[in-house]
Design a protein around this nucleic acid. Sequence first.
DNA 1: TCTGGGGTCCTAGGACCC
DNA 2: TCTGGGGTCCTAGGACCC
Length: 420
Amino acid sequence: MYALVDCNNFFVSCERAFQPALEGCPVVVLSNNDGCVVARSNESKEMGIKMGTPFFKVKHLVDQGKLIVRSSNYTLYGDLSARVMSLLAEVAPKLEVYSIDEAFMNMDGVRDADLRSLCSALVKKVRRWTGIPVSIGIADTKTLAKVANHFAKRYKGYKGVCVIDTPQKIRKALSLTPIGDVWGIGWRGAPKLEAAGVKTALDFAERPSEWVRGRMGVTGVRTWSELQGIRMVEDEKDEKRKSICTSRSFANMITGLDELTLRVSDFAGKCAEKLRKDGTAARTVGVFIHTNRFREDLGQYYPMASVRLDVPASSTPEIVSAALGVLKMVYRPGFEYKRAGVIVTDIVDSDSIQQTLFGFDSETRDRDDRISRVMDIVNSSGKNTLRLATQRGGHYADGIRREYCSGLYTTSWNELIQVR
DNA sequence: TCTGGGGTCCTAGGACCC
DNA sequence: TCTGGGGTCCTAGGACCC
């Protein structure tokens, strides 16, 4: 069986772990740049605040003292996530970390009779040791485990654990699950299915597979099979990422190439750092810049372009200079830019890189790699002390709004360790 | 005034080949 | 007058996830 562990209202729970006074209060956490609501406590959900709401639409509630808000603090959330995951790894034969707040435990080999009590104990332990409340859904396939997880969250009586392990329970659960809540269907697909008379997950599961194939392609059939109890979503192997993206929206719009150069240098530098951390290198470097899509009164421009390197690279100088070359290609004056990003693709393991036949630049490359290693060591505190000249005094998080940030509870501790 | 970021997979269509 | 057919590979864009 699979047990899907999901942290409840994760970002809010992280804030509460260090500020217990927030318990019982309506709280929301905002995306980068204080843009949208990306996490809500149960109390703020009950107030009718929807996921993804732009902050300016609920700011009046904050000003009136009816809602508490926090800017996102991803270093804190990443740290707490790692603590939760390490507790799960102690009990799961195989653990697949699916996102910052979710993990599939492959429980094959654990006796069915022991599953529930094991998971109930785990819910209590994670809460006690990390302060984070979690829910666990247990079933034969990942998609059914997701369904079970919804029930574990929604009904207090389950005490955080719901098992769906018989045909009768599966039928019952699917009949109570709106089609739009099924993992893999999506908000675009749901209205079409509803129009065709498919209101619940059970309606969907009872359609013939050809019907599903014709309407939704192979991905639809995969979801359909999973609901029948047939495993289709493979366990992720421990593979490296196939693409890495660093992008940000800006607090204020940018028009000049100089300032974009600064930002793109930083995004590219961050991508290079991520590559080195993964032990990989990228052969293609792409850059995109976006105008503000909400400002219909202004000209719109969304170019994206990329360059292919002779040899896959992970050094900061190489990735940055490639990105700046692409930026010059796509940049047009006269537009106000709101967002930019760098994407590196065609990723390979660093140790499998073939040197080019023409070795004339291998010395430069070696030098760049050594420079990057030094940068990683000096910058490991997260302060970005060492930068390229194109990055000037910049930090890739500069120019980003973050007005409601809580304390750096775990990060300051990390920095002490680094200094030592 | 103010609207996130980082991934994966699938598919349609174009380029190219014989 | 009249202009094939079948295959592969690559890419951009869309849909989905959290």
